[in-house]
Structures are given as C-alpha cells and as structure tokens.
Amino acid sequence: MFQDTKLLPPDPILGLSKLYQDDARSEKIDLGVGVYRDLSGATPVMKAVARAEANVMAAQKTKAYTPVDGAPGFGPAILNLVFGEDSPVLSSGRAAAVQTPGGCGALRLAGELLNSQGAESLTLGEPTWPNHIPLLSAAGLKLNSIPYYDRDANAVDFDAFKAGAAKLGPKDVLLVHGCCHNPTGADLSTAQIDEIAAMANAQGFLPLIDTAYHGFAKDLDADVYMIRKFSAALPEVLVTYSCSKNFGLYRERTGALIIIGETADSALAVKSQATSLARRNYSMPPAHGGAIVAEILSNPELTAMWKDELAEMAERVRGNRRLLAKTAQDFGLHNRLSFIAEQAGMFSLMPLNEDQIRIMREDHGVYVVGGGRINLCGVNESNVEHLIRAYKAATEA
C-alpha cells in the first residue's frame, strides 16, 4: 500500500519555527507562527479561561458525548456575543450555530455544506490565509481568486476587489475576512463593507465571513460590523468563527459555523444539513473548549474579566504596530513602514522579496514567513531596533 509513498516537505511556517529553535544566536526574532504572545514570548492561559475551566471541571460528572451541534450553552453564547442579545436576527430565529473543531473545522464544514448545496465556485481575495485554499478545495469546491491587496500601496485595492466581485452571481460564494485580515492586516472600511453587501444583495452571491480575530481590531462590537451588516441586509450568510485567539483556546480546537437564513425554518434546515455532514466527518466536536466559552459568557464576572484581558491583548498588538512604525521613522526610513500602524490584528506584510527574507533570516536571525508576513506579537521594545536594522540591511543591500 505505502511502498511508493513520498515524504512531503515540512509545513513552511512550522519548518520556520524549527529553524528558529535551532538558531544558537542570542539576538534572534521569531515573527512567524500566528499565535498571540506576551512580552516574554509566552502564549498565556487567560485568567478568565483558567477560572472557567476550574468551574467546568468541578461541575463535570461524566465524559459522555455531547450533542453534535456542540457543548450545551456554547451556540447561544457565541450567537449573543456576535450579534448582541437584542439582535433582530436572533429574536427572529434566523441564526443558528454549530460548534466545530476550531476555525479550520468550521471552514471545512462550510466548504462541504456549500458543495453539497450546489455552490458553483468560491472566490477568495488575493492574498489570503494560505490554509483557506487546501481546506476549501479539499471540500470539493472550485476556487477562484480576485485581487484584494496592493503591495505597492500597502493597502486594500478595493476597486480591483469590487471588480472581481462584480462577476459573481447566484450559486457563487465570496469569502471575506471579518476583521484583522490575515496576512495583510488591511481591512475593508465600513463604507466598503456596505458596498459589498449591496452587491451581494443585487447579484445574489453568498458571503462567507471568516472571523478568527474578533476583538483584536477595534472592539468586540466594531469588529463584527460586517457580520451584522450582511445579516441585516441579506437573506443568507455563513460565518466561520474561531475561539483560538480571543479566548486563547488554540489547542482546545474551539470554533463555530454560524448560519444566517432567510427565515427561522431555513436556518434550521441548513443547520440540519451541517450537523449531518459533521456527523459523517468528526461526529461531534471536542466539548472542553466549548464548555469553557459557555461558562465565561454565562458568568458576568468571568465575562468582564475576559473582556478586560482581551482588550489588553489587543492594545498590546496595536502598541507593537505603533512601536515598529515609529522606530522605522527614527532609523531614517521615513514613512516606509507607517502603514503598519494603521492596520489591524496580528499580521502585516513587510515590503520584502524572498531574497531579502533570506538575508534577514541568515544574516540577522530575523525569521519572517514567505511573502513577508510578520506576526506583530513578536515585536517588542527590546528587539525592535534589531528588527529595523535587519530590514534596512536586507532592503538596502
């Protein structure tokens, strides 16, 4: 069976982490793997999560299976968080949630659902998170790409993105990042979101909103503007949601597929299709992370604690953006990296070609993912000057 099986190359990001770990230099910087890290470089367990986990474990009496749509209380808690408790979308029953194994599980389930319902294509802005492509193509979808980001201007190329979306019609799907675009950090403005909503309404295409960094751009309400706008303006929307970053539940694999239907009955029907597909795939999601999220969001004290911690984490990332941009100015780069301070989330694309990325890694111990994507969590006051020196040396060589 496996005698001719070929060894695949390592994942580029995980392989970069291994190179960083093996680097003996004391002055080295890891800007690769996409996890939140504090000043010490650790990815901490949030205090609210630790408290909630203790409560869950103290109350737990069984390890029996939980329902296929998730841990009890998880779905309603996520829906209230995303839409707000007074949302007409919720009161009308138009929204339903299925807990999934992380945001990746939500994307794969969304892809299989769309394929089963006759979606003709799924269109992504270029560039996008690299794992979007294998996750969604493996679900059987035909993928197309349209321009999203102008690397020369270091900004969204909205005219090109809109021109690509103008070609979509019924049975087409457009994937959009809800906030904190990965890998560019460049989000659509509210006015641009409104334009895409109007186009979807007129042309009939279905938006799939990937939401992996809720709370890291502006705040919990502002960051779901796209979801709320699309859901109010359109009869159908799909949302994939990850709890990895904003709850720090990376290894617990906690996410959700959120379905917005034209009516409560249609939302329920689509949910039934999604849970049937989930049953054939992973049967039911890991319960632990979902129980933690439900406990946090049902306990006012823990909710307040979590919101404070999340706001602190988000402000640290924003502070790192400002620090990087200011240090670049101080080192004579003028406004070459000023765009980074204006973007959102953990990631940005530094203006680097592949040879310059290699020079930064080999000559200066600065580890950057191919394409120039950097995780701003790896920047701090103790290493930012070394980072800028490395960038200058690589780009001015």
Score class of each variant (00 low, 15 high):
Met1Trp: 07
Gln3Phe: 13
Gln3Ser: 13
Asp4Gln: 08
Pro9Ala: 10
Asp11His: 15
Asp11Thr: 02
Asp11Ala: 10
Ile13Glu: 10
Gly15Phe: 10
Gly15Ala: 11
Leu16Phe: 01
Ser17Gln: 12
Tyr20Leu: 06
Ala24Thr: 11
Arg25Pro: 01
Ser26Asp: 14
Lys28Cys: 04
Lys28Gln: 10
Gly32Thr: 14
Val33Gly: 05
Ser40Leu: 11
Pro44Asn: 07
Ala48Arg: 07
Val49Pro: 11
Val49Asn: 09
Glu53Ala: 13
Ala58Val: 09
Ala59Thr: 10
Gln60Trp: 05
Lys61Ala: 12
Ala64Met: 09
Val68Thr: 13
Asp69Phe: 00
Gly75Cys: 08
Pro76Cys: 08
Ile78Trp: 06
Asn80Asp: 15
Ser87Asp: 04
Pro88Tyr: 07
Ser92Thr: 14
Gly93Asn: 09
Thr100Asn: 05
Gly102Glu: 06
Glu112Tyr: 02
Gln117Cys: 06
Leu122Thr: 02
Thr123Met: 09
Gly125Pro: 10
Glu126Ala: 15
Thr128Tyr: 05
Ile133Tyr: 13
Leu136Glu: 00
Lys142Glu: 13
Asn144His: 14
Asn144Lys: 11
Ile146Trp: 06
Ala153His: 05
Phe158Ala: 02
Ala160Leu: 02
Phe161Glu: 00
Ala166Asn: 08
Lys167Val: 03
Lys167Glu: 13
Gly178Leu: 01
Cys179Asn: 14
Cys179Trp: 02
His181Thr: 13
Asn182Asp: 12
Thr190Asn: 15
Thr190Leu: 08
Ala191Ile: 04
Ile193Asn: 06
Ile193Gln: 11
Glu195Tyr: 01
Ile196Gln: 00
Ala200Met: 02
Ala202His: 10
Ala202Glu: 15
Gly204Met: 01
Leu208Trp: 08
His214Pro: 00
His214Asp: 05
Ala217Trp: 03
Ile227Gly: 03
Ser231Val: 04
Ser231Met: 04
Ala233Arg: 13
Leu234Trp: 01
Asn246Val: 01
Thr254Tyr: 02
Thr254Cys: 15
Leu257Ala: 04
Leu257Gln: 03
Ile260Arg: 05
Gly261Asp: 08
Gly261Ile: 06
Asp265Arg: 10
Ser266Trp: 00
Leu268Val: 13
Leu268Tyr: 00
Lys271Arg: 14
Ser272Ala: 15
Gln273Val: 13
Ser276Trp: 03
Arg279Met: 12
Tyr282Pro: 02
Ala287Pro: 14
Gly289Leu: 00
Val293Met: 10
Ile296Asp: 04
Ile296Met: 10
Leu297Gly: 09
Ser298Gln: 12
Ser298Val: 06
Asn299Pro: 01
Glu301Cys: 05
Trp306Lys: 01
Glu309Arg: 07
Glu312Cys: 05
Met313Asp: 15
Gly319Ala: 11
Arg322Gly: 09
Ala325Gly: 07
Lys326Phe: 09
Gln329Glu: 14
Asp330Glu: 15
Leu333Ala: 10
Leu337Met: 06
Phe339Arg: 03
Ile340Thr: 12
Glu342Leu: 10
Glu342Cys: 01
Ala344Cys: 11
Ala344Leu: 11
Ala344Ser: 14
Pro351Cys: 05
Glu354Gln: 15
Arg358Tyr: 10
Asp363Val: 07
His364Glu: 12
Val368Gln: 04
Asn375Arg: 08
Cys377Lys: 00
Val379Asp: 03
Glu381Met: 06
Glu381Val: 12
Ser382Trp: 07
Glu385Ser: 12
His386Ile: 04
His386Pro: 07
Leu387Ile: 11
Tyr391Met: 04
Ala394Asn: 08
Thr395Ile: 07
Thr395Val: 11
